[in-house]
């Protein structure tokens, strides 16, 4: 089993798929995150892909402060990601709330809503720092086990049906 475990850990290290969520950032950090994908930094050489779908993603990259309106959306995206997963908070606002932390509508950093694994400071964070943050997150992600599959598939299906039936309680808007 050791061989398969090593293979899985190696694959996890080599293929992190990111989803980027802008939680009310000023776009400074967002532009730096997107800059990582350009030929200058080319994160695809590490297998990093910016995937637009939480169901396929391994790492949630969040920039900007969390406020009362988007906290629910952030939690929703986090819940949709299958285990194992990691969260990176980018920039001064994402890590702590930044200059907006005292504002009446702001909850604070990303860690007020979901557990954060890596904090990347900076205003805005440099692309090198963001890539470094992803590498740090991968070290944590590697050893993480997916939830034990003791439940049979039928139980999963039942849960899926209940989840669908309760969909209106989870609605973000309206």
């Amino acid at each position: 089993m050791g061989f398969f475990k090593d293979l899985l850990h190696k694959s996890r290290m080599k293929s992190p798929w990111l989803i980027h969520f802008d939680c009310g950032s000023c776009n400074g950090c967002d532009i730096e995150i997107l800059a990582c994908l350009t030929p200058v930094y080319d994160v695809e050489r590490f297998g990093i892909l910016n995937i637009g779908n939480p169901k396929h993603a391994d790492i949630l990259v969040v920039s900007g402060t969390v406020n009362y309106r988007n906290a629910k959306a952030l939690k929703n995206i986090y819940d949709q990601m299958p285990e194992p997963k990691a969260v990176i908070a980018i920039g001064a606002c994402g890590t702590s709330g930044g200059v907006f932390r005292e504002a009446y509508n702001v909850l604070g950093g990303v860690d007020k809503v979901i557990p954060v694994d890596v904090y990347v400071p900076g205003c805005p964070a440099k692309p090198e720092a963001i890539i470094d943050g992803v590498v740090l997150a991968l070290e944590k992600l590697k050893e993480r086990q997916p939830a034990k599959e003791t439940e049979p598939l039928v139980a999963d299906l039942k849960k899926a049906r209940e989840f669908y039936e309760n969909r209106e309680d989870r609605q973000v808007t309206g």
Binding site: L8, K14, K55, P82, P146, E149, L153
Partner: peptide
């Protein structure tokens, strides 16, 4: 291989 090692999320 990474995807095979992920938790399954069943829709139906």
């Amino acid at each position: 291989i990474k995807l095979l090692g992920k938790d399954r999320q069943v829709v139906n």
